[in-house]
């Protein structure tokens, strides 16, 4: 069983479009959407939810107003500027990191810690195989932990049903959720675009994959929007010893398939679909 993680660094380069296309092309796989704070894969794969679970993580400090004397110890000790004190202390839940320092040192025992319900995660059935996905509640944190949870569930499912592939739609960036999504991946496919930003972000995500010793390959989406820059992307990949598996042309079928809410492969055999199919075939040979 091999786990393929689709990343990009820069957002909006086509991670989810390509993941959904692979969902059609790969046989015998489990799918996972690890972009938990802006999860979109379900919009293309129309999952039928089989299981729904709460995701609890971390704590937030709360003040019992009737006990608090407003002494301000908590505000002095909080390093996250989450506490303001007038008559009583009050804690801004958006700034609270859940470290528990205020609770521990409150001389009146007026502060307690409440478990955070941060979101939900799902096991679903799609036309293309089983899928694990999640939704972080509005404004909640710990997305890295939710990513780890989604990946662990996807791996369990894949082991139970002895699938050949786990295909993971990753989050943008290079921070906490991306690092969490890298754990256990056998190969990263970096989806990039021929722009200065695309190249810059490709370098950073390639460095990150190296840092965690995960092999990486790349593909260039909408390459024909700037052919010269596409060559630069290829040069950069060569310098980083990353295989470029293909170049995908700009194709309005991609946007049209998004609007219809289906994977590209279902509605198009146009130039982008042809190239993505080729990339999937080459990707399998990377192992």
């Amino acid at each position: 069983m091999k786990e393929i993680l689709i990343l990009s660094g820069k957002g909006g380069t086509g991670k989810t479009t390509i993941t959904a296309a692979f969902a059609c092309l790969a046989k015998n796989k489990v799918l996972a959407d690890c972009d938990v704070d802006a999860a979109d894969l379900h919009l293309l794969l129309s999952p039928e939810i089989l299981e729904e679970h709460p995701f609890k993580s971390g704590v937030t400090a709360k003040v019992s107003k009737s006990v608090c004397t407003g002494c301000g110890t908590c505000a002095d000790l909080c390093r996250f500027n989450a506490v303001t004190v007038d008559e009583h202390a009050s804690i801004d839940p958006f700034s609270c990191e859940g470290c528990g320092v205020c609770e521990y040192f409150c001389p009146e025992k007026a502060i307690f810690l409440k478990d955070n319900l941060c979101g939900r995660w799902y096991v679903s059935r799609t036309r293309y195989g089983q899928m694990v996905h999640a939704a972080l509640d509005i404004g909640e944190e710990n997305s890295g932990k939710l990513v780890s949870l989604v990946k662990r569930q996807a791996r369990d499912l894949a082991e139970q049903s002895a699938t050949d592939w786990i295909i993971v739609d990753g989050p943008p960036g290079i921070g906490c959720p991306v690092i969490a999504s890298l754990s256990g991946a056998d190969m990263v496919l970096i989806v990039t675009e021929p722009t200065l930003s695309g190249i810059h972000d490709l370098k950073r995500v390639a460095d990150l994959a190296k840092h965690f010793k995960t092999p990486a390959c790349a593909c260039i989406n909408r390459w024909d929007l700037n052919r010269q820059m596409a060559k630069e992307v290829e040069r950069e990949c060569e310098a980083q010893a990353i295989n470029v598996l293909g170049r995908i042309p700009f194709d309005e079928d991609v946007v049209n398939s998004l609007v219809k809410g289906v994977p590209l492969m279902e509605v198009s055999s146009g130039p982008a679909a042809v190239k993505i199919k080729q990339i999937w075939e080459r990707l399998q040979k990377q192992f």
Binding site: G11, G12, V36, D37, A38, F94, L136, I138, G139, E140, E141, S143, P171, P172, G173, G175, P177
Partner: peptide, 14 residues
């Protein structure tokens, strides 16, 4: 701001 809707985006828009 960064993309996404969780902590980094929230800290940036606050």
């Amino acid at each position: 701001c960064p993309p996404g809707t969780s902590c980094p985006a929230m800290v940036a828009v606050r």
